[in-house]
Amino acid sequence: MEKYYYSYEEFVQDTTKLIHLSKDFNADVLLGAARGGLTLSHFMGEALNTRKVYSLNSIHYEGTQKLETFDIFNIPDLSKASKVLILDDIVDSGETMVEIFKLLKEKFPHVEFKLATIFYKKTALIQPDFAVKEATQWIEFFWEKDIKL
């Protein structure tokens, strides 16, 4: 499988683009999907000067291996939110994000949710509302590769 190394410098440029693309949504909460969306949500929270940056956990992959189950947990209380921008690094199959949206809309039916990602695949079950790049190969993000113990 061909792999593409995604650098910090490219991430900063793409995060800036994603901020401009999603700014008109005026989200009152940024919700990063851990782990891939944490770096993105932190950067966007800093750039947009908001402290309403939350996260939830979702597990559907173990390394490059897709699991048969979805585990979504640590869901924050979004009952006072009106617009939530869900952030993740990539929408691959889209299966996990479909489950996240289903769960969040069920728990918080009054909230408008939109999705922003750096990468997306055209074949995903769900497409982001805001995205920067199409993924055509396996992405190795700098936060996965640059620090190893």
Rank of each mutant, 00 (worst) to 15 (best):
T15A: 15
F70P: 05
A27S: 13
L125T: 04
G36P: 02
I126N: 03
F108W: 06
G32V: 00
F113D: 11
Y61R: 11
P109A: 06
R35L: 10
K145M: 15
T123D: 06
T117Y: 02
T50N: 04
I59Y: 11
H60E: 15
R51Q: 15
F73A: 12
K80N: 15
D129C: 02
F73Q: 14
A131M: 03
I90D: 10
I100T: 09
V111K: 01
D24G: 04
T117A: 03
A124M: 09
T50Y: 02
N26R: 14
H20K: 15
G45K: 06
V98N: 05
N57R: 14
Y4V: 13
E112H: 12
Y4K: 14
D88S: 03
V84C: 04
P76H: 10
M97L: 14
G63A: 07
A81W: 00
L30M: 01
L115Q: 01
F108P: 04
T39N: 11
L85I: 08
W138S: 04
A34Q: 00
Y120N: 12
P128E: 01
K80W: 05
F25E: 11
D71R: 13
W143H: 03
L85M: 14
T117E: 01
I59M: 13
K102G: 07
K114E: 14
K107S: 09
M97T: 08
I86W: 00
D88V: 03
D28V: 06
S7Y: 09
P128I: 00
L85W: 07
A47L: 14
K80G: 12
I126G: 02
V12R: 15
H60G: 13
H20I: 08
E106M: 11
N57S: 10
L67P: 13
W138Q: 09
L56S: 03
V98W: 07
K107Y: 08
L31F: 06
D71T: 13
D88C: 07
E134Y: 02
F130R: 00
T136N: 12
T50H: 01
